[in-house]
């Protein structure tokens, strides 16, 4: 298929009884991009992934992967996708190698190819452990890396990573995103979910989900730009008068929302002209600087 979209989701609803885990969402994923799926726990991210993988049936709506309707034909689809679920799913009592060999065999790979591929992937993730180590003995971050390898073993065109960085150290998270970038560079489409907003900036495009619905789609820059055309002001209190002062200024014509931020406040500027005047007037009470809005701000604005 030469079409630009590898996944197309049309008006998808997935209901469990009367509860709609996914409620009428539509989006598409372009070939080779890193597509981020963001939202709080329970927003419907995992349900969406499972439906695209053919593990759940849509209650209504359609899902196309590579132009084929998923609900009609999952067997043709399966060899081309790799799915790393949120839960750690390798067999803990088997070694790294045995887990890989098992995964490879199910994808009909030859033993020799599996062997080669394990070496390649071990280099890819810079594995410092022997491939004959029992998985249960590995540190959490390494387990997650090995899990990724098992997902990539059969060289899928489309990889689903469901919260791959949940519960791992910041260093491992950074490493992980490095790997995801690499993958995408090689032409693999990566569909990744996370609830860390800072990770979203690694994605080409993101979808923001809340309570089963999509609240925003676009590149991270677009989302920030569309929601916060103006920068934020960071106000650090110089003395106690500031507290009183800000109460009157907030919700007035200068700032919209404000929230506690370190030793001061972070507030959305409504009008640049008035902000300049405010800054000049209050130099003695506040230390004032501007900062760029982040995806975190977008998320808080759209979801809460």
């Amino acid at each position: 298929m030469s079409s630009k979209e590898i996944i197309r989701v049309e008006n998808l609803t997935v209901a469990f009884g009367s509860f709609k885990a996914v409620d009428g969402i539509s989006f598409d994923v372009k070939r080779g991009e890193i597509f981020g799926f963001l939202g709080a726990n329970g927003a419907g991210k995992t349900t969406t992934i499972r439906t695209i993988c053919g593990l759940l049936n849509p209650s209504s709506g359609k899902v196309f992967v590579d132009g084929k309707d998923v609900s009609s034909d999952t067997t043709a689809l399966k060899p081309h996708i790799g799915y790393m679920s949120q839960k750690f799913t390798l067999y803990k009592d088997l070694t790294i190698k045995e887990n890989m060999e098992f995964a490879g065999a199910l994808y009909n790979m030859k033993a020799a190819d599996i062997k080669k591929k394990i070496k390649v992937l071990a280099d890819f993730i810079k594995l410092e452990f022997d491939e004959n180590s029992i998985v249960a003995d590995l540190p959490g971050g390494v387990k997650q890396m090995v899990s990724l390898c098992a997902t990539l073993l059969h060289e899928p065109d489309l990889v689903f990573l469901d919260e791959p960085t949940a519960g791992v150290s910041p260093q491992t998270r950074a490493d992980f995103w490095g790997l995801i970038k690499d993958l995408s560079g090689r032409g693999t489409t990566v569909f990744v979910t996370t609830h860390y907003m800072d990770e979203a900036s690694y994605c080409g495009r993101i979808v923001l989900m809340s309570a089963g619905k999509i609240v925003a789609v676009g590149t991270p820059e677009e989302l920030v730009e569309n929601n916060f055309p103006k920068p934020f002001a960071e106000l650090v209190f110089k003395d106690a008068r500031a507290v009183e002062k800000i109460k009157t200024e907030i919700n007035a014509s200068v700032f919209a929302r404000a929230e506690n931020y370190g030793a001061g406040l972070r507030a959305e500027i409504i009008d640049n002209g008035r902000f300049k005047i405010f800054s000049a007037d209050n130099k003695n009470i506040f230390e004032i600087k501007t900062s760029a809005p982040t995806l975190e701000d977008v998320f808080l604005k759209l979801v809460s």
């Binding site: 993988c53 839960k87 799913t89 390798l90 803990k92 994808y107």
Partner: peptide, 13 residues
């Protein structure tokens, strides 16, 4: 229980 069923089902087996 340990979630590997989900993985198994996502493979062509």
């Amino acid at each position: 229980e340990n979630g590997s069923m989900e993985l198994l089902l996502s493979t062509p087996v």
